[in-house]
Amino acid sequence: MIEVTIQLLGFIAAALLLIIGIAGMVFLDNIIKKIIAFTLLSDGVNILLVAIGYIEGGVVPILLPGMSTVEFTTHAALVFPVGIVLTNIVIGVSTTAILVALAIMLYRRYGTLKASVVLKGERR
């Protein structure tokens, strides 16, 4: 029996979000829905990264007054994933903005949001 920790729950949430996000991106036809699925996927990646940096019984990686350096270095959670995730959140917002802008442009031209109509391959 595996002991349930908050890290394991983080991995489970990440796996669920990744599966739901990928499935939504692949199987849903509406472009806006696909974009929402992408935000879910990006959330899943974020939580996976943070869960990797988690340390059981650790502390928040902020050096509080009265905490010795040794105690901090042995107990603090990893900081590097937090940096990555912060960047990923920002990149996710900009990607979403670009995707929505392109969806608006294509809607004006084609009058529909169905990916199977708008993004069909063309014979050249």
């Binding site: 990928i22 991106m25 692949v26 990916a115 199977s116 993004l119 069909k120 391959g121 063309e122 014979r123």
Partner: peptide, 16 residues
């Protein structure tokens, strides 16, 4: 090799 989104996604799913 058509650039249909669904076809590329198909390869993608196989990869995953």
């Amino acid at each position: 090799n058509s650039n249909d989104l669904n076809r590329v996604l198909y390869w993608f799913l196989i990869y995953f």
